[in-house]
Design a protein around this nucleic acid. Structure first.
Lengths: 366, 366
DNA sequence: TTGTATGCGTTATCAC
DNA sequence: GTGATAACGCATACAA
């Protein structure tokens, strides 16, 4: 019954139809200001009849609030980000907020573009898994401009923003300790350890040795490596750099290659710790193809709980991160900021659970 | 160096700073209209210095285009939607579009709210996995108002919108035929078959018998059941309703329960076909817990390829849907519509691939 | 309680 | 080519 194209039903039309001014129409439709019940009914009915739908662009332009928050994820396709996103979506939706989604693929250039676009679209805040933990002037600028930023999964040095993370170091230390407690002395680690500002693995090891490292602003994988070192040290075991499988590019192939290298060493590790979901899947590939029996030939603990870990042969022990909870927490923090909460930035370190399964056993006596 | 709060750097400021009118400033910054090179440089420099960032709300308000498309997914947490979303995000990003994301949880009320919100936010188009395939006046209204709609995964009767689907019926028929070719005569099916407007399974069977069913506007699971029936019929096998595991609620528990029922029948099926990822994972749970050997005790084919299917014991044969491709196709169709393409709606039926793996064998002689 | 007038930051339509 | 000025659809200060 309406026009052919576009929905040209503006508040002015409704006002005319109801025989009131645009101001009053706005007041009842927008839910602000006062008006008589009779007027309210008349306006609402007119709106209904005309099929009025508020233009949130116009509202946002004037109020300065869009009720939209921007999200920069690494890769929505990964179960990790998908779950976090779910958490974010749930609490924002409940509050009437929309989410504008972008992928960064963990590349800073992408992130820059994304943040630029989101801010041009006037989002009320930014929830982001940052790609650069040391500088990030674009995020500094955001908080300076009053655009709240909530970090997820990792924190940025000297950025006045909330962060929702997981205690990776402790969780990792705990895993390795379970393995040493079971009697393992050669424990391999497979992790994506692409970039650390301080240099390579050896540099990292000496930095840890010196104790001059703030683990909270490391990338999660490095934190997990940190925990691995912690555990070995307190078990009185030496760190063998050859047992640290450093995956330089975040890909299955690279992870498989590195796992294969570890498992084909002359002195094969008796236990393996994989530092994230992609590493775990890649490791399983290799383990299966080498026909190794878990846990007889190899004990295995994975960071991140993937669905197959619970129904595969003996079950794979895993660290299960509270992913949707992280998303929810991040969103709640964000909403508080948007509502004007000016208290000092929070660093939330959630505790992951450990799913004990049949993939841990004592090493085979040689 | 700028103001404390908000980014009050408007085009007016830039114009003033460059000594030109807001009109010219707008022309060079917005990239429309003509202007001298000298002026261009001056304006651009002024913008740079002041840290000008265009307000896309204002632009959208006047142009009527937001360069944002709304996406209504079922559940982003599922690998299915996550992959599709990835495809959508990639092509929209390349075109400078943003995506506003919502979950419907396959509930029509949620979908209604979502579409309402998205349209109020003035998205240029809607990509949606619809929850109701028969009416959907809200989507009819959208296309009527000139807001392009692209459907994914399933199509709606009599809606003038593009749709990107997969040929579920054919793919399913193909799977079952592989099983009958291998000699199977008792083939179980586990699928979420919650709602079909025509009634229950028996009604569906007779409707299929009568041949009076448009399979393209059925929910995917029903299409897959349709293919199952197709294959059995052309193999000359009877349809045993007891072998159709109908999962009424979309949950792992329900799926497990139904699978268990099937696999504990006195005459256990010799092969199983699971109609989607959730069903497959649930089925694997049960199969493992019953200690059934694949493919000796049971052949298995799954719809949707999950990562574990390639490295679990003998490998699980699966239908692999081109998910990111679906998302990309949907986004491309959408962009074309937004650019003004007025040609008649397209129904795209992509062909899934089949990943043959070691989960199919001849049934054990009894 | 209601109406008038103005402004949000752009783009679009004119004259010049 | 460039500059006033009027939209876009709504919210808000102020007057009535």
């Amino acid at each position: 019954m309406n026009d052919k194209r576009q929905d040209k039903v503006t508040i002015t039309e409704v006002a005319k139809h109801a025989g009131v001014s645009t101001a009053t129409a706005g007041r009842v439709l927008g839910g602000y200001g006062y008006s008589r019940q009779e007027i309210k009914d008349r306006v609402k009915q007119a709106a209904e009849e005309l099929g009025y739908r508020p233009n949130l662009l116009a509202r946002g332009l004037i109020t300065g609030k869009t009720k939209t928050i921007g999200v920069v994820a690494g890769d929505i396709q990964s179960p990790f980000y998908a779950s976090i996103l779910r958490g974010i979506a749930d609490v924002t939706r409940a509050a009437g907020f929309g989410i504008l989604l972008t992928n960064s693929d963990e590349q800073i250039e992408r992130e820059l573009e994304a943040v630029q676009l989101l801010r041009e679209k006037q989002v009320d805040g930014l929830i982001i898994a940052p790609s650069d933990l040391s500088g990030s002037p674009h995020l500094q600028a955001a908080v300076r401009d009053g655009c709240p930023v909530v970090l997820i999964d990792r924190a940025i040095k000297n950025l006045a923003a909330d962060a929702v993370c997981v205690d990776n170091r402790a969780a990792s230390r705990d895993c390795i300790t379970r393995l040493t407690d079971a009697g393992h002395r050669r424990i391999g680690l497979v992790a994506e350890l692409e970039r650390w500002e301080g240099g390579d693995i050896t540099d990292f090891l000496t930095a840890v040795e010196d104790g001059a490292l703030d683990s909270s602003t490391l990338f999660p994988s490095w934190q997990r490596l940190y925990g691995y070192i912690d555990a070995l040290r307190s078990a009185g075991l030496p760190i063998d750099p050859g047992l640290i499988g450093r995956v330089g590019v975040y890909s299955s192939e690279a992870a498989r290659k590195e796992t294969q290298r570890l498992l084909e060493r002359p002195e094969r590790p008796t236990a393996l710790f994989t530092a994230d979901g992609l590493m775990s899947a890649a490791a399983m590939h290799v383990i299966t193809s080498l026909d190794l029996q878990i846990p007889r030939d190899l004990s295995l603990i994975c960071f991140d709980d993937l669905d197959w870990m619970s129904f595969i042969k003996p079950g794979i022990a895993a660290v299960v991160q509270p992913l949707t909870e992280m998303g929810e927490a991040a969103a709640r923090l964000m909403l508080a900021r948007v509502e004007g909460d000016g208290s000092k930035p929070q660093y939330l370190a959630l505790q992951p659970k450990f799913a004990a399964r049949g993939s841990i056993a004592a090493p085979l006596a040689l």
